[in-house]
Structure formats: structure tokens, C-alpha cells
Design a binder for these strands. Structure first.
Length: 418
DNA sequence: TGACGTCAAGATCCG
DNA sequence: CGGATCTTGACGTCA
């Protein structure tokens, strides 16, 4: 059982990917971006290992225009050493990675050029995993594609195009239900014909259900049967609906109660769970801490040290509740801790609390800050209290100070994330 | 023809 | 001029 997250990090300094627009994609520019992005990936893998996160989706944007004729660089040769080093870290830590071409990679398109580009894109993804030296347990996840007014013939076209793919790509490909066209029953049916494993996505299934009486657990069991020995453990996608946005939008953070209900349904099965959520690694750590057998309170204390100002600026009551909860060092109240945290995160920020938290953060610099920085802080605080300034601006200023005075503890905290 | 989703780049504005 | 904020881009399908 592994729990992981997709592509990007939240609150981890210096782990941004870079890109450029088409017209600026010169060989020099691309080389510079690739070098930067590989360094970023390396740091993210290090971060994952340090945080015991052993499931991760590598961003398709690793190589800008990676499957486009615009990028003719032999990046897999020029950067082979960097790829090898990263790949070794992944293997040594027993991390499992995946890739997921976006909604615009459409293998079953009736437009020959679109389908051709999809094949090129799959080859690009495969080449990254190859360059990392990873076997076929590290999957590429793909949706079936469009319907074009005739689902069954479009499904057949998917099957036909899949059949023409290189054998080595087929070994890595897994297919997933989507939120508008191909539901989980459709995908399982296609899987029966092409023998590709199926990724069950719970939110897609909620929005685009198969209209059968099957329950979630049964779909997951059906999908499990499509995963062979050589494919590695079954993999599923888990996400929660953002209550404020349209159907299908991922929530900002994983609500731990909802996750635990789902997790208990999986009881005992060896299933890898890829979370799709805006706060990325933060929710992965949350879910790992609530399901780990290593129930040591230091895990929660380390989390608390990062969330402390996030909670303080929302709810003093939750702040006190968490402090109390973590007093007894022999217990491991993970779910209770994240319940309070989730509750705090749902609480809108009131000015008084935000000012209080900002003053705590200011405490890191108040002895070293220059007079003009102090004046600036007081001015921004005053303006914020008067409603003349967004909290975001005040935080940006504090973030600049944290960077200047190298307050890593603060920079590693989640105060600037939410 | 624009919405969909996603993110950072690029463009523009502001003090 | 630097920093903040707004707009565009890159992809394909569907209404």
C-alpha cells in the first residue's frame, strides 16, 4: 500500500518547473529548461523519500514540448546521467512513479494527425520512464478519448490504435475511467479486449457512473483482476469534490474522515492510491500519517510545527485543541489531529486571527529587521486592518523577509501555502 | 466560437 | 525599475 500525489509540490521551496511558449522554444532555451526541470525533479524525489512518500506522478511538463517536433534535442542522451541518478533514487527507495498524459492526448481520435500526435506523446512518456531505467510497473495512465457521436465505434477505434502501439509501450499503458465519456464499465470492457490494467478513479465514477448497481468496492475488485504480476500492485485515483466549484473539481485538501471511510473499504488489499488534490504532497502526508503502522507522535509534532500559523490565523479554538491533543507523547491521535486541522482549514480567516498569526511570524525577524522593514511591516499591518490591503500582500512581504533572513523553519512551514 | 483544466510565461500596470 | 496583477498559451472535444 502506497499513497502519493501528482506532479507538483505545495510548500516545498525551489521545486518549481519551468516552461516557455512555443515561439521562444529555441534549442538553447529548451536545454536550459530541461536542466532546471531535472534538478527540480531530483529535489522532489529527495523530498518524497525524506517524507516517506513512495508513490508519485512525474509531470508531463518535465521536458518542455517533449513530444513536439519543435523539440528535436536528444535530451535522453544529453541528460542521461541526471536521469540515471534520479532513477536510481526511485528504485533504491522502492518508490513507484507514473505518468499521465493530459486530456488532450487522444489516441482514439478519427483525425489521423491527432491520433499520430497521441502516439508520439506516449512514446515521449515511455522514453522518460526508460531514461530513468524503470520497469513496466511504473505506469503511463491514459483515458480512452472522445465519443464522436458513436461510443462503440470510438471504443473500437481506441482498441485498434492501441493494437498498433509498440509492445513496450503497451506493457506500460493502463486505462482510466473519465468524468464525461467512458465510465468504469466501459473501460473494463475495453480492458477485457486489450488486456490493459484499469485505474479506478472514484470522483470520475461519481460524476460519470456506469449506471449499474455495483458499489465502489466491487468496481475496485473488478479492476484489481486486470492487474497482472508484471504490472505491480493495483493503482487507483482518489479525490474529493470541491464543494465550491463545479462537478469534477478537486478539493483543496483531502478531508481525512472521507478518506478513512474510503480506505476502510479497501481493507487489506494491496492498493496504491494516487491522490488528486490541490495541496498535493500535504494531503499525501496527511493520509500516510493516518494509515501508517509506525505510530510515532513525532510525525504529528513535525506536521504541527508546519501547520501552526495556518491554524492560528483561522481558529484559536482548534489551535488550543491540537496543543492539548498532542500533550500525551505516548499516544498517536493522527485522525483527531487532522480532524482539527481540516476544521481549521474550513474556517474563514478573520482579521484579528490573521493579525495575531502575522505578529507571531514577524517575531522571527523583529530583532534583525532594518528600521525601514519594521516601518513597512507596521504600515502593511495597519492597512490590512483598515481593509485597504489583501492578506496575500502582507504574507508576500513576510515571505520576502523569511527568504532574506534565511528562516528555513518558516519557509518550510505551510503559512505561505494556504 | 468559446468553455473546459492547468500551470507558468509573458504582458501590463503601478508606485 | 521591481514587484504585483492580469492575460495568454498549449492541447482536443463538444455544445
Amino acid at each position: 500500500m502506497r499513497i502519493g500525489y501528482a506532479c507538483l509540490t505545495a510548500g516545498v521551496p525551489d521545486t518549481e518547473f519551468k516552461s516557455c511558449i512555443l515561439k521562444n522554444a529555441s534549442a538553447e532555451k529548451l536545454r536550459e529548461l530541461i536542466a532546471h526541470n531535472l534538478k527540480t525533479l531530483d529535489k522532489i524525489i529527495d523530498y518524497n523519500i525524506a517524507n516517506q512518500i513512495y508513490l508519485f506522478r512525474i509531470s508531463s511538463d518535465l521536458i518542455p514540448f517533449g513530444s513536439s517536433p519543435v523539440n528535436r534535442l536528444p535530451w535522453y542522451e544529453d541528460f542521461s546521467r541526471q536521469f540515471a541518478i534520479i532513477g536510481q533514487k526511485i528504485q533504491k527507495s522502492k518508490m513507484r512513479v507514473s505518468m499521465h498524459p493530459g486530456q488532450y492526448t487522444v489516441l482514439n481520435s478519427p483525425d489521423v494527425e491527432v491520433a499520430k500526435r497521441a502516439v508520439a506523446d506516449l512514446e515521449y512518456h515511455d522514453r522518460i520512464l526508460d531514461s530513468l531505467g524503470l520497469d513496466e510497473k511504473h505506469k503511463i495512465v491514459l483515458h480512452i478519448g472522445g465519443v464522436y457521436k458513436d461510443k462503440s465505434s470510438s471504443a473500437r477505434r481506441f482498441i485498434s490504435h492501441y493494437g498498433q502501439l509498440d509492445e513496450k509501450i503497451k506493457k506500460r499503458l493502463v486505462i482510466e475511467n473519465d468524468d464525461r465519456s467512458y465510465n468504469i464499465a466501459d473501460v473494463l470492457e475495453i480492458s477485457q479486449i486489450i488486456n490493459a490494467p484499469v485505474v479506478y478513479d472514484n470522483l470520475h465514477d461519481q460524476i460519470n457512473s456506469a449506471g449499474s448497481s455495483n458499489h465502489e468496492r466491487e468496481w475496485i475488485d473488478d479492476c484489481r483482476k486486470t492487474w497482472g504480476q508484471q504490472d505491480g500492485p493495483q493503482k487507483i485515483h482518489y479525490s474529493q469534490q470541491d464543494p465550491c466549484r463545479q462537478p469534477g473539481s478537486h478539493s483543496s485538501t483531502i478531508n481525512i474522515d472521507g478518506f478513512m471511510q474510503f480506505y476502510e473499504k479497501l481493507s487489506g488489499s494491496d492498493t496504491d492510491i494516487m491522490l488528486e488534490v490541490k495541496d498535493k504532497n500535504l494531503s499525501a502526508i496527511k493520509c500516510i500519517n493516518c494509515t501508517t503502522e509506525d505510530q510515532n507522535i513525532t510525525r504529528l509534532e513535525s506536521e504541527w510545527s508546519k501547520y501552526i500559523y495556518t491554524v492560528l490565523e483561522r481558529s484559536q479554538a482548534e489551535y488550543r485543541a491540537i496543543t492539548k491533543l498532542l500533550k500525551n507523547k505516548k499516544q498517536y491521535p493522527a485522525i483527531g489531529f487532522y480532524d482539527h486541522l481540516d476544521k481549521a482549514l474550513r474556517t474563514p480567516i478573520e482579521k484579528g486571527n490573521a493579525v495575531n498569526a502575522a505578529q507571531h511570524v514577524w517575531g522571527y525577524f523583529k530583532d534583525v529587521a532594518l528600521t525601514k522593514e519594521k516601518d513597512k511591516f507596521l504600515e502593511l499591518m495597519e492597512k490590512y486592518q483598515q481593509g485597504e490591503l489583501e492578506l496575500r500582500r502582507l504574507k508576500t512581504f513576510l515571505h520576502r523577509l523569511a527568504t532574506k533572513y534565511q528562516q528555513d523553519c518558516l519557509l518550510d512551514s505551510y503559512y505561505f501555502v494556504f
